[in-house]
Nucleic acid binder design. Sequence first.
RNA 1: GGAGACGUGGCCGAGCGGCUGAAGGCGGCGGUUUGCUAAACCGUUAUAGGGCCCUAAAGCUCUAUCGAGGGUUCGAAUCCCUCCGUCUCCGCCA
Length: 426
Amino acid sequence: MHDIRYIRENPEAFDAALKRRGLVAQSPEILRLDGERRASQTAMQEAQAKRNDLSKQIGDLKRTGGNADALMQEVAGLKDKLLVWEAEEKELGAKLDALLATLPNRPAADVPDGRDEHDNKELRRFRTPRGLAAPREHFDLGEALGLMDFTMAARMSGARFTILKGPLARLERALGNFMLDVHTTEFGYTEVSPPLLVKDEAVYGVAQLPKFAEDLFRTTNGSWLVSTAEVPLTNLVNGEILNRDELPYRFTARTPCFRSEAGSAGKDTRGMLRQHQFYKVELVSITAPDQSEAEHERMTECAETILNRLELPFRTIVLCTGDMGFGARKTYDLEVWMPGQDTYREISSCSNCGDFQARRMNVRCRSPGDKATEFVHTLNGSGLAIGRCLIAVMENFQQADGSISIPGVLRPYMDGLERIQVAERK
RNA sequence: GGAGACGUGGCCGAGCGGCUGAAGGCGGCGGUUUGCUAAACCGUUAUAGGGCCCUAAAGCUCUAUCGAGGGUUCGAAUCCCUCCGUCUCCGCCA
C-alpha cells in the first residue's frame, strides 16, 4: 500500500517510480480522488460536529425538563445531508483504496530498469558446472530409479503433482531439515510451524490480494491455502507496534506451498519443476526502516550459503524493474544450474518490500520512551525451494550409471547413505 | 456439531442510552521530598484522520475509534443484526 501523503507531496516522483515498472502516470487520478474525498470528509465532519452539539443540547434540555422539539427537528433536517456526505466519503475512500491497492511497490533506486527477465543483471557466480557427458533430467533419473512416480500422482491428483518414494522422499526431508538447521542454529532465525490456511486479511497484508487471487487455491469456506510461508510468517506481526530495539525479527518455516499455476499452461509441464504443491523453507525478516537494506544482503547470503554447502553451481542476479514481484522494492534471485536443461533456474527469490506490506498490515515500531511510530520493513526470501533443490541435487550429482551421489552435508540426514541407486529386486 | 458466557486504553477493571475518550487501580513518564534507595504526594500518560496555521515542528480545533462491519435513535461502549475471536459444558475426532 502506498502512502497517500507521500503521493500528495511528491506526485512527480511517484509517477516516475511507477513508470519504471511500465505504468502510466497514476497521480492525477489519485490526487483527484484524494481531493474529493477530503472535501467530502470535511463537509461530513462539520455536519457531525453540528449534530453532536445539538444532540448535547437536547440531552441537557431533556434532563432539565425543557422542550427539545425544535432542536430535534433541526437535527432531523441535518441528517439527510449527513447521510449523503457519509456515503460519498465512504465511496470515495473505497475507490481510492481500491486504486492504491492495485499499484505495485516503487522500485528501489539501484534496481536496473528493464522490461522482463532478459534485462536482469547477473551479480556473481559460484562454482562451475561439472561437465557431464550426457546429462539426464531429474524425471528421467527419478523414474528410472523407480522412486519418482508421475503417473500415479496424476491418477489421484491430476497434473503437476509428484510422488517421491524411499530415499528420494527422504532426500526431500533431509534437504528441508538441513536448511532449517543452518538457518536456526547459524543465522538466528526462529523456526515456526504456522497455519497453512489463512483468511483474506492475511493474504491482503502481503499484497497477494486483491490482485493475484487466481494464482491461489481457496477452500469452500473461504480460506486460502498459503502459496508460500511468507504469508503466515509475515502476518506474525500483523497490527502490532513492535519494540524497535528488538528488531530485526527473523522467522523461518518449512511448509508446503500451494499454487494454482494459472496462466502457466504449457510451461515446465514435465517433471516436478512447477507443481501445484511443493515444500519450501522460507525466511522472513521484520526490520526497522534503516536496517532493511543490510538485512536484504544478509538474507541473500543465508540462501547462498545453502547452495554453497550443497556444492551446487549457481548465480545471483538482481531483478530488473519489469521482472520484480508486486510488493518488492528490490529482489535478488538465486538461479541454480540444471544440467538436464542446460540452464540456470530460479531456486530462491529474496525481496525487500520496504514498508509496502507493513502499511497494509499496519505494523509499526518505536523506540522505548519514544512517542512517534514508523512502519517497519519486511523482507522475505526462499531459503530454499526444496522441490527444485531436490531436482538440482539429482541432476548435478547424477552418475553415468543413473545413480545419484549425495552431497556430504546431507549424508548425516540420510543415515550415512552416500548414493541413491536402483534398489535390488526382492 | 449442540448449549451457554464473554470481548472496554500498555495491563487489570467499572460503566449497560446523553454530563464517558471513557471512573478506579497497576504500570510508564515528569516533578516535590530524600545522604542513597524505598515510600509518600502532585502532575501527566491512546491511536488515526481532516481543517486552521505553515518552510517545518509545535500549537489550536474538529471527526472517528470501547473486537470488526451494519442497523435503531436527536444522541450508542451501552439496544438489535452479521461476522471474527476467547472461555465453559456436552458430543465427535487426529
